[in-house]
Amino acid sequence: MRKADIIVALGLMLVGFIVLADTIRLGFGWGMSGPEAGFFPFYMGLGIVICTFFIVLRGIKTYKKEGPGKPIVVEGGLTQILWVLIPAAGMVLLSELIGLHLATVLFLAFYMGVVGKMHWIKVVLVSLLIPLATYIVFDKLFLIPLPEGLWGKYLRPF
């Protein structure tokens, strides 16, 4: 937990520095007619850098005194989270190629079948019907084209 605390704070500090770099380009002074474009982001960025500095300092202090403390994720929790995160990320990446709806068919089928261990008939029915229904509602009725991916043009059924 404390290690993670320090790492996240350092990451945020990095964000602060990246922001500062751009606000200096924009100008962060108080011009003739009030603040310049970089004024507010500059002080926000500076604030993040200063605050995270103290958070890191405090984190290191307690770390030295009391040791690493509890892990950030409950024991065994990380596997559970990855069981959600990896398929979800996979679905997103896959939709770049074959489109959101088709990627969802695979995602739903994988999740219900492998993780949920449901009966295969149910798996097939639900994972086909839900994306099909949304495809009809969004792409066909409401004319909101959802991402079809790189190969989507060739996979379009109708």
């Binding site: 679905m91 969802t104 739903l108 999740y111 219900m112 993780v115 949920g116 449901m118 839900i130």
Partner: peptide, 9 residues
């Protein structure tokens, strides 16, 4: 196991 992937979708 149905609800979660549908919510993400």
């Amino acid at each position: 196991s149905i609800l979660m992937p549908v919510i993400i979708y």
